[in-house]
């Protein structure tokens, strides 16, 4: 379990991405992905909440009796989410208004609990913080990509600035819920295909007793 920070980063961002591979935490954030700015605010909130609660729970892991572990986890998470909510209300009042109940829903985001259970329960505080933060960044990368597509095609803008030419007809479906599901599926498909190809290439390379570097480009060996 004593993984290196760099490897944790790559894992959380790509090989074990919380959204694409673990399919966690879609609940609270997908709803705001028709707007890049709101998505950024939400995912930064999720990353910070994950990082700090992983850190806290890792510090507390020997103090919590097993029976009440879950409720303690939820309470720690809600503490950080309340802080985030108060900060948002103070410094970004209109983003906070648009996000509405979704800020509070960070509490039940499965990623936070998942990292607390899977990583922080068995690791040192600092590395748990890092693991939580990078999980959040992996999550952010996917959701911001989805938000970019949805805002660009749905409103013709990025971050509120108009990008599309004058005659562009907005795609209404991109503003509504179904497009988010389709886009998640497409990103998932892309990522899994790329990973499968890389794995196949690595296997072929190993079989050919060539350099067993898992990070080789797409199929350098003649499989």
């Amino acid at each position: 379990m004593s993984a290196k920070p760099g490897k944790i980063f790559i894992d959380n961002l790509w090989f074990n991405n919380p959204v694409l591979i673990q399919v966690l935490g879609i609940c609270s954030t997908l709803a705001v992905t028709n707007n890049v700015r709101n998505t950024l605010v939400m995912t930064v909130g999720v990353s910070l909440a994950t990082a700090f609660s992983s850190w806290t729970l890792s510090l507390m892991k020997d103090l919590i009796p097993r029976k009440v572990r879950m409720i303690v986890q939820v309470l720690v998470i809600s503490f950080y989410v309340i802080l985030i909510d108060i900060l948002l209300r103070a410094y970004l009042p209109d983003a906070s208004r648009q996000l509405g109940p979704y800020v509070g829903l960070i509490i039940t985001n499965c990623i936070i609990m998942g990292r607390a259970e899977a990583f922080a329960a068995a690791n040192k505080p600092l590395i748990s913080f890092w693991d939580g933060l990078t999980s959040g960044i992996g999550y952010m990368a996917v959701l911001v990509a989805i938000a970019l597509v949805r805002e660009l095609l749905g409103f013709g803008s990025v971050l509120g600035f108009r990008v599309m030419p004058e005659g562009f007809v907005p795609w209404t479906i991109m503003i509504t819920a179904p497009s988010a599901f389709f886009l998640v599926a497409m990103v998932m498909w892309l990522a899994r295909n790329l990973q499968a190809r890389r794995e196949a290439a690595a296997k072929a390379a190993k079989a050919a007793k060539a350099a067993p570097k898992p990070a080789a480009g797409p199929s350098p060996a003649k499989a």
């Binding site: 179904p178 497009s179 599901f181 389709f182 599926a185 998932m188 498909w189 899994r192 499968a196």
Partner: peptide, 14 residues
């Protein structure tokens, strides 16, 4: 293959 499981479920939900 890449869509098996979660992927196709997402499309269905869509």
């Amino acid at each position: 293959a890449g869509l098996k499981g979660a992927g196709i479920t997402m499309i269905t939900i869509g």
